[in-house]
């Protein structure tokens, strides 16, 4: 189930500001209340794909430890994509909520 929403999850995790892979994973775990405990390595192909799509930019920095670190940030198209996908998700969530509760949702999905 997570797989289809990984892009939205990663974009949302970067909404607060630039971060490196490990920090993104930690942010996802923290914000989801540890619900999304995905294999950590799967974040990197997703970051690469989102960067290729122009939704993320990245650059090398040097961590305090002296190691080279790749830091990712949302681009303008990335912020737009996050807004759009969030709206789609909210409509979908409302619709499912309406179905499960037996009351019609507020907005058409």
């Amino acid at each position: 189930m997570l797989k289809g929403h990984l892009d939205l999850i990663v974009l949302a995790a970067l909404a607060a500001g630039p971060a490196h892979g490990y920090a993104i994973i930690e942010e996802i775990k923290r914000k989801s209340g540890q619900a999304f405990d995905l294999p950590e390595g799967t974040i990197y192909p997703a970051l690469h794909r989102l960067e290729q799509a122009g939704f993320l930019s990245s650059r090398w920095t040097t961590a305090e430890s002296g190691r080279k670190r790749r830091v990712y940030a949302l681009t303008r198209p990335g912020r737009r994509a996050l807004t759009e996908r969030r709206a789609v998700w909210e409509r979908f969530s409302d619709a499912i909520g309406g179905l499960l509760e037996g009351s019609p949702c507020k907005k058409p999905a």
Partner: peptide
């Protein structure tokens, strides 16, 4: 090359945590 450096950094971060 890029993934190798990212993975090493990630794993050392995870160990430090």
């Amino acid at each position: 090359r890029r993934v190798r450096q990212e993975v090493e950094d990630h794993l050392w971060e995870a160990v430090a945590a």
